[in-house]
Amino acid sequence: MPKKVNVICTNCPMGCGITLTVDEKSDEVINIEGNKCKQGKEYALAEYKNPVRVLTATVRTNSLENPLLPVRTDKPVPRDKMKEMMYVVARVNVKKPVQLGQVVEQNIMGMDVNLIATENLT
């Protein structure tokens, strides 16, 4: 039985609603429709197979003026793991000084993803 999966392409303001037809047994994508250009096809495939996002958040610091330091993952992470990752982020504490780009937490949840500072903390 083929199933239908809907995704919205975010590559341009058109925001095409794209429907993928997927074979439930083999998980093979049989058909993609609704995209108004080629880019949309690739996007829909990626969104179906492995939707990823960069996670941005803040971590605590020992600075009185700047109690928080903004951070992000150094590569996109699976969308469905973002909430779980926030529990790891919530436990990170950094001591000044921290340089923009510095790794503040390594290999989160063993996923080969690091958390990096996106601001200097002096």
């Binding site: 919205i8 975010t10 303001p13 058109m14 925001g15 996002r53 969308r79 973002m82």
Partner: peptide
Amino acid sequence: GLIRNEVQCLHD
């Protein structure tokens, strides 16, 4: 707002 934000902030 932008379609990117609708998908990544609300639908997600």
